[in-house]
């Protein structure tokens, strides 16, 4: 079976700063990957390369068999299949919640408005905020906004979902409502890459944990092994820190 995501010897520089070094990674369909590592290790940059919010410089990235390069058509195809959830939600503040969800389906997939709205309402029910459909993002709590952001991505019916620290901008009491949505999504078989330090979530859903440091993948293991028996000295040090 072809992998959904395949990175071969991928490198990226910011000017002469080598952020990502020889990344090799293969993610199968339905696989859940949690990426962790110290601040500045390149986690965000890695997943932002997967839908070309950042361009990589050499090596290969293939998403669902489509090579990611300067070809705009490929990029367009890939972005239709890859959803992304940001740390700061990035909802469109001038649009209502419902409009946030229907914008891309209407314009990118050319789906008629009524149909797009119907599907959007389904998704809003799934993340349990259908009663807020006609409000604006500024009127919602952080947790609600992040659930809307997840629903907005799902509206495009992506095959892969990328999450960049989706809960780290939230007040503690709102973390669970967002993680619950993500766990549900995982159960439905979505291919997921998630940058997070939520160990409970990692243990519950991840097939693999990837530990990054200074632009390299240092260790790769199933969550059980990684959290109880890390092998690399840098992972040991990192885990000691986040466990206090």
């Amino acid at each position: 079976m072809n992998p959904m995501i395949k990175l071969t010897d991928m490198n990226k520089w910011f000017d002469d700063f080598h952020v990502l070094k020889n990344i090799n990674l293969s993610v199968g369909e339905g696989e859940k990957i949690v990426i962790c590592g110290p601040s500045g290790s390149g986690k965000s940059t890695l997943i932002r390369c997967l839908n070309r919010l950042e361009a990589h410089q050499n090596g290969k990235i293939e998403i669902n068999g489509i090579p990611l390069n300067d070809n705009l058509k490929n990029l367009q195809e890939i972005r239709k299949e890859v959803g992304m959830v940001f740390q700061h939600f990035n909802l469109f503040p001038h649009l209502s919640i419902l409009e946030n969800l229907t914008l891309a389906p209407q314009w990118v997939h050319k789906i008629p408005k009524e149909e797009a709205e119907e599907y959007a309402m389904d998704l809003l029910r799934r993340v349990a905020i259908s009663d807020q459909a006609y409000k604006y993002p500024g009127q919602l709590s952080g947790g609600q906004q992040q659930r809307v952001a997840i629903a907005r991505s799902l509206c495009m019916k992506p095959k892969i979902m990328l999450f960049d620290e989706p809960t780290s901008a939230l007040d503690p009491e709102m973390v669970k409502e967002v993680l619950d949505v993500m766990v549900d999504l995982a159960k439905e078989g979505m291919t997921m890459l998630c940058v997070t330090h939520e160990m409970g979530f990692a243990k519950q859903v991840a097939d693999r944990v990837i530990f990054m440091d200074e632009g390299e993948i240092v260790e790769e293991a199933d969550p059980e092994t990684f959290f109880s028996n890390p092998t690399h000295p840098r992972s040991i040090e990192f885990l000691a820190q986040i466990l206090h």
Binding site: L53, R79, V82, M84, L91, L103, W107, M156
Partner: peptide, 15 residues
């Protein structure tokens, strides 16, 4: 983040 969210959703430049 607004530019990035729009890009990530697959909107074209003009959209």
């Amino acid at each position: 983040g607004q530019y990035e969210a729009a890009d990530a959703l697959g909107l074209s430049y003009w959209q």
